[in-house]
Write a protein that binds this DNA or RNA. Structure first.
Length: 229
DNA sequence: ACCGGGATGTTCT
DNA sequence: GAACATCCCGGTG
């Protein structure tokens, strides 16, 4: 059982490097939105001009403008006609890289999250929402925290819109889980998804990359046990 | 457990 | 006009 220590906002320098390096370091950091708080348990790296799956691959547009700005801001986009997803912008200004926030383990403000999630479902169902379904997925995460277009460009270092990423002293895993990114039609094989191995709040995803195919040596691969409910 | 389909609208070709 | 960094539901086994 791990207990967090004093919370300290991550400095802008944390985000200045390559998204592929920053992504695994974001694991076990804390995303704060007012009173709603969660531990980051799953992320994906997107590397702009070098990455066919990145929104920034073909250069700046109105939608991806935030990705080309300074690091440490939130890039929020709308997809599938109804969902928002949030990224943390990385790399120096002008270099469009980002880390998609794919899942949180809720820490506090769970009731607010539950309310936001149910409201977002347009009254479709009355089934109770378990803790594991609050923020396990990029769109669920945004729904739980109320992140929308209004939050695009929010500065996570200054705490714009009560959004912040903080460190509570729990380090990233020495051996993060790694796999291909979820839901892509190109570059889906690149092992740029990172997660806390075995954490029940990690979203469902593709089968882990077989050992030996993975790029980095010593990276931990794990077949997760079946999910309850 | 696994699979298939529908919802819904912005963005870019 | 097609694609989309998704989610939820209902079918089947």
């Amino acid at each position: 059982m791990t207990t967090g220590g004093r919370r300290r906002t991550l400095p802008r320098s944390f985000y200045g490097g390559d998204a592929l390096d920053v992504a695994p370091l974001l694991l076990n950091k804390i995303l704060v939105r007012g009173r709603r708080v969660g531990r980051i348990v799953e992320v994906e790296a997107y590397r702009g001009a070098d990455d066919p799956a990145s929104h920034a691959y073909r250069g700046p547009t109105r939608r991806n403008a935030t990705m080309f700005g300074p690091p440490g801001r939130l890039y929020v986009y709308f997809t599938y006609g109804m969902h928002w997803c949030a990224n943390v912008v990385c790399g120096p200004e002008g270099v469009a890289q980002a880390v998609l926030l794919r899942a949180l383990a809720p820490v506090s403000g769970l009731e607010e999250m539950r309310q936001a999630r149910l409201a977002g479902r347009d009254g479709r169902t009355d089934r109770p929402l378990g803790d594991r379904q609050l923020a396990s997925g990029p769109a669920r995460l945004c729904q739980a925290l109320g992140i929308t277009r209004d939050d695009d460009g929010a500065d996570l270092v200054r705490g714009d819109r009560r959004l912040r990423v903080v460190d509570d002293g729990i380090p990233p895993p020495q051996r993060p889980g790694i796999s291909g990114r979820v839901g892509l039609s190109s570059a889906a094989d690149l092992p740029w998804r990172f997660f806390l191995p075995g954490d029940p709040h990690v979203s469902r995803g593709p089968a882990p990359v077989p050992a030996g195919v993975a790029g980095a040596a010593g990276v931990f691969h794990e077949r997760r046990p079946p999910r309850r409910r």
